[in-house]
Design a protein around this nucleic acid. Structure first.
Lengths: 205, 205
DNA sequence: TGCCAATATGGCAGTATCTGCCATATTGGC
DNA sequence: GCCAATATGGCAGATACTGCCATATTGGCA
């Protein structure tokens, strides 16, 4: 990708400022008490402009997740079509989670803020799912298209997608909770542990 | 539980009528195009009364899921605390899904209508998650409390809950899709197949 | 450099969701 | 048959979001 251009850079900058303002206000006042007007004012823009950057109030807290899911989708595009689809999906998630290997990094700190909000704001969780639903459907389609063959049973692939997204969710939640409790936690390791835990659950069936 | 009383019966009746009207309008016009005023008028009540029965527009389509999740939660309360928690959770879900064993039953038909809507309305999926988030947290707490012990690792239980809810979701989706495509499908069997599918996914990692 | 087209922003009116408040009606128990 | 509890309706208001138009800023090009 060439030079992003001044307009594009400015756009990203503004979006980041809005998101930062939204995150702060959500943390301080709660998701519902913080109004779009508050956020817009804190970010130095009008309400109308806010909705040109984010389609809904809650979305302003979720660009970090959007980027993560973009990374998963992009990673899947480069997966080996010959290998086992479920295994490839697990690897792709594992690699994407490496972006949060260092708890002190800016990316991790930002993701942790959102994760904490997600834990106490069901509405935010719902907003996340609203986008993830469409994305998971695409993921499912991509998997089915890429790995067309005898193993491409619809239920099998659907379960693989549900399992991986569920494991990622569980890993994020556990990571956030343990750090909040002052315990050590590293996301990639937790994801591996979650995979092991899933193994044990299956054998229990 | 004694006689429900006239008031309670009437309340259930009204709620069912609102839900029926909402479901029909959502199917005909789509979730966003159908307004609360439309639904209220079709159900013969005022808008204000609608919001006394359902906290949000989308909720009017979801009492079937609410009942299902109530059944899961109740079933878990009666689970054997000595047994393996993950196995018990799987059994509880399996039993709850038996309510939809007969595709022609009223319960199945109603659930199928909602499931079809869920497939094409991400907003409805989001509304469902909004409630399920709190419920899953309770499920997790209940599991942890009931099966306190060395095996009650937080990550392990979280994964079990995510896995079971994910499998149930995959089973519902597959059930709905296959029936829509004119293929035979029976929900309890699909859930068992989903458990088997999960077995295969784990070995993939 | 200066102009033009593209794009970003703001303001404003309008719709829809959802809530609080009060008045009225219906209901269940004594 | 009366009284308290509860259900309902109407209305005003807050907030989320959208369409439309006017204005300003920007990037490319002569």
């Amino acid at each position: 990708m060439a030079a992003p251009g001044l307009r594009e850079r400015r756009r990203r900058q503004t979006m980041a400022e809005i998101s930062e303002a939204a995150l702060t206000l959500f943390e301080e006042r709660g998701l519902e008490a913080a109004t779009v007007d508050d956020i817009a004012e804190a970010a130095g823009i009008s309400q109308r402009t806010f909705f040109r950057y984010f389609a809904a109030k809650e979305d302003a807290a979720l660009p970090a997740h959007r980027e993560f899911e973009d990374a998963v989708e992009a990673g899947l595009g480069q997966a080996d079509p010959e290998a086992d689809p479920c295994e490839e999906l697990g690897k792709v998630y594992g690699r994407a989670l490496q972006a949060f290997a260092d708890n002190a990094s800016a990316a991790s700190q930002r993701m942790l803020r959102v994760s904490r909000l997600l834990r106490r704001e069901p509405l935010l969780r719902a907003a996340l799912v609203r986008h993830s639903a469409a994305r998971n459907a695409r993921l499912f389609q991509a998997l089915a298209a890429k790995f067309a063959g005898p193993q491409a049973d619809d239920l099998q692939l659907r379960v693989a997608v549900e399992l991986c997204t569920g494991l990622a969710r569980a890993a994020f939640d556990t990571w956030t909770e343990r750090l909040e409790a002052g315990r050590p936690a590293r996301l990639p390791e937790i994801f591996v542990d979650a995979q092991d835990a899933a193994q044990r659950v299956r054998t229990a069936f």
